[in-house]
Amino acid sequence: MDFMTKMKNQAKADVRTIVLPEGEEERNLTAAAEITRDGIAHIVLLGNEAKVRAKASDLSLDLSGCRIIDPLTAENFEEYANEFYELRKKKGVTPEQAAEIMKDPMYYGTMMVKRNDADGMVSGAIHTTGDLLRPGLQIVKTAPGVSVVSSFFIMETNSAFGDNGTLLFADCAVNPMPDEDQLASIAISTADTARHLMGFDPKVAMLSFSTKGSAEHEVVTKVQNAVKKANEQRPDLIIDGELQADAALVAKVAAQKAPGSEVAGAANVLVFPDLQSGNIGYKLVQRFAGAEAIGPICQGFARPINDLSRGCSAEDIVNVVAVTAVQAQTR
Score class of each variant (00 low, 15 high):
residue 218 E to Q: 13
residue 210 S to F: 04
residue 233 Q to C: 01
residue 212 K to A: 11
residue 170 A to H: 08
residue 171 D to R: 14
residue 234 R to D: 03
residue 220 V to P: 03
residue 149 V to G: 08
residue 182 Q to W: 06
residue 196 H to P: 00
residue 172 C to N: 06
residue 143 A to H: 13
residue 173 A to L: 15
residue 227 V to W: 01
residue 236 D to N: 08
residue 191 A to E: 09
residue 203 K to G: 09
residue 227 V to H: 01
residue 241 G to N: 08
residue 187 A to V: 02
residue 202 P to D: 13
residue 168 L to E: 06
residue 156 E to F: 01
residue 166 T to R: 15
residue 157 T to Y: 02
residue 153 F to A: 12
residue 193 T to S: 13
residue 185 S to Y: 00
residue 226 A to T: 07
residue 143 A to N: 08
residue 203 K to F: 11
residue 217 H to Q: 10
residue 214 S to T: 15
residue 147 S to W: 01
residue 228 K to W: 00
residue 155 M to D: 09
residue 205 A to P: 12
residue 166 T to L: 13
residue 229 K to V: 07
residue 220 V to R: 06
residue 225 N to H: 09
residue 170 A to L: 10
residue 209 F to V: 05
residue 221 T to V: 13
residue 239 I to T: 04
residue 172 C to Q: 00
residue 165 G to V: 10
residue 209 F to Y: 14
residue 176 P to G: 11
residue 190 T to R: 01
residue 174 V to Y: 03
residue 182 Q to L: 01
residue 205 A to I: 06
residue 227 V to N: 00
residue 221 T to I: 07
residue 206 M to I: 04
residue 189 S to W: 01
residue 146 V to A: 02
residue 183 L to D: 03
residue 207 L to V: 09
residue 210 S to G: 12
residue 234 R to K: 13
residue 148 V to R: 14
residue 150 S to F: 02
residue 184 A to D: 07
residue 213 G to N: 10
residue 225 N to Q: 11
residue 244 Q to N: 07
residue 224 Q to Y: 02
residue 159 S to E: 00
residue 231 N to L: 11
residue 163 D to A: 13
residue 179 D to N: 15
residue 145 G to T: 00
residue 175 N to V: 15
residue 166 T to Y: 01
residue 166 T to E: 03
residue 223 V to R: 05
residue 228 K to M: 07
residue 202 P to F: 03
residue 243 L to F: 12
residue 212 K to T: 05
residue 175 N to F: 10
residue 160 A to C: 03
residue 197 L to E: 07
residue 228 K to H: 08
residue 223 V to S: 10
residue 235 P to E: 14
residue 142 T to H: 01
residue 149 V to C: 08
residue 212 K to P: 02
residue 186 I to E: 00
residue 202 P to E: 06
residue 197 L to H: 04
residue 198 M to C: 15
residue 173 A to G: 15
residue 169 F to T: 04
residue 227 V to M: 03
residue 178 P to K: 05
residue 160 A to P: 04
residue 149 V to N: 05
residue 177 M to Y: 04
residue 167 L to P: 09
residue 232 E to T: 11
residue 171 D to C: 14
residue 156 E to P: 00
residue 227 V to Y: 01
residue 213 G to C: 05
residue 229 K to Q: 14
residue 147 S to P: 00
residue 209 F to Q: 05
residue 244 Q to M: 13
residue 237 L to V: 09
residue 152 F to Q: 02
residue 176 P to E: 11
residue 145 G to Q: 00
residue 181 D to G: 06
residue 236 D to C: 04
residue 190 T to C: 10
residue 170 A to Y: 08
residue 207 L to Y: 11
residue 177 M to T: 08
residue 218 E to C: 04
residue 241 G to E: 10
residue 173 A to C: 15
residue 160 A to T: 12
residue 198 M to K: 12
